[in-house]
Design a protein around this nucleic acid. Structure first.
Lengths: 243, 243
DNA sequence: CAGTGGTCTAGACCACGCA
DNA sequence: GCGTGGTCTAGACCACTGG
């Protein structure tokens, strides 16, 4: 391990943060693992304890680590898994109650991205993406029609994507492709159900729906998924709190 | 000013945070004011610079203060005023650009609340509310049709509500009724424009729109406003970030 | 230039979790 | 009892802002 640059314009604690994030990215440490203590980092990188502490505290602030007094510092689960766990990827969507979620994969194929998708995923002109189209159901009723676009270079084996029936897409990213989704941007607007969507969503043309666009980013800030969802308006209600 | 308790179980930086927050609450310092520097706080309260720094940094984290290197530390505006400022009350709604917002007041009158409104505002059976219905425009085009329901007991003089043309409702609450709105809950869902709304929103029946319901709370957690908005779907796009 | 916040060091004592 | 994180001190040098 290279030493930190003590004469750099980049603060030591910031360099140390990058090292720690790097180790998580590379998979040396995974969620739940204990990372070295403040004293160990201090010796290992030749900084004071306050500096190693500051690096850790910032990462705790970012939700990447968590600490337990007397025990140690640990790698946290990606935040998105906390809020987007299991079913939809949208933050606070829910229709109360214990839904029985189920996904039907409609297609998985390599496509040429539209310019909108290419821009969102920051792709070069010639790069392809994998499109996965899913119908997301709860209690065997369709709620969401969703297409995920994933840069081809992040999906080592598209066959693996079929597993999204069993585990969530972001768990799959982390386990199969070694990509941890840590943040996302969303935009949404109300729309009407289109004729070609009625078949899947089992509703009528012109009914209210929400169009949701999400771009998901890995720990380095690189976009790894662009997702377009049509959400049935009669079955979902969205909540937020402002504090 | 009493000294801090150096032998308390409560950390010094935490006590100092309380003192600073207290000074803001009591109005000694108001948004934009410069507060004492780290060195001044250090001398004044008999702590080390790192301790006064930590207190300030925590308050910056909470959004109560902000710092500018070389200039000083300043009191920030309340968070809700940052996100709900001026025009809509919804957090991240915007259609980019410099809108020229304008509200048209359609009516202000005392009404008997529906059970839904009574529940949201936690009212007794016999309590009345003031309804204020507004058409909210930008660049002279209607965007939002909005009804605010306010418990009668918080509005000492309904005439004052007419001022919402000039200042925001929450500024009015604070200045006229001495109520500081500090949090809110929102729920939204896609709907279709109804016939009776077309006249105001200058659009056609059946077009996509967003129905937004917001309950606003004062600093004690008491609900002070329930608001129902119809937002034109073709003119607004909503953004959120998940981090 | 003096004052501010930003970074960093080298110490210290404490409360907590665990063996 | 030892290692952990939590708090705290007393210094230091730096970059930035303003007069």
């Amino acid at each position: 391990m290279e030493p930190l640059k003590h004469d750099s314009v980049i603060p030591l604690y910031h360099q140390l943060m990058e090292r720690i994030k790097g180790s998580i990215e590379k998979g040396h440490w995974t969620p739940g693992d204990k990372i070295p203590s403040e004293n160990q980092l201090m010796d290992q990188f030749g900084v004071s304890r306050n500096t190693s502490k500051k690096a850790i505290e910032e990462l705790v602030q970012e939700g990447i680590l968590y600490r337990i007094q007397g025990k140690g510092t640990f790698v946290a689960k990606p935040k998105l898994q906390q809020s987007l766990m299991g079913f939809y990827s949208f933050s606070k969507v829910l229709k109360e109650n214990g839904l029985n979620p189920k996904d039907i994969i409609l297609k998985i194929e390599e496509v040429t991205p539209t310019s909108k998708i290419r821009e969102a995923l920051q792709l070069r002109e010639d790069e392809h993406v994998i499109e996965m189209k899913r119908l997301r159901c709860a209690n065997n009723e369709p709620y969401i029609l969703e297409s995920s676009f994933i840069p081809k270079h992040v999906v080592s084996d598209p066959e693996q994507l079929k597993k999204v029936g069993e585990i969530s897409l972001y768990d799959l990213f982390s386990q199969q492709f070694n990509i941890v989704v840590t943040s996302a941007k969303e935009a949404f607007e109300p729309v009407l159900i289109r004729a070609d969507e009625t078949e899947y969503l089992q509703t009528e043309e012109g009914r209210p729906a929400l169009l949701l666009e999400r771009t998901a980013y890995d720990i380095t800030g690189k976009p790894v998924e662009f997702c377009i969802s049509i959400v049935r308006g009669d079955r979902c209600r969205f909540y937020t709190e402002l504090t």
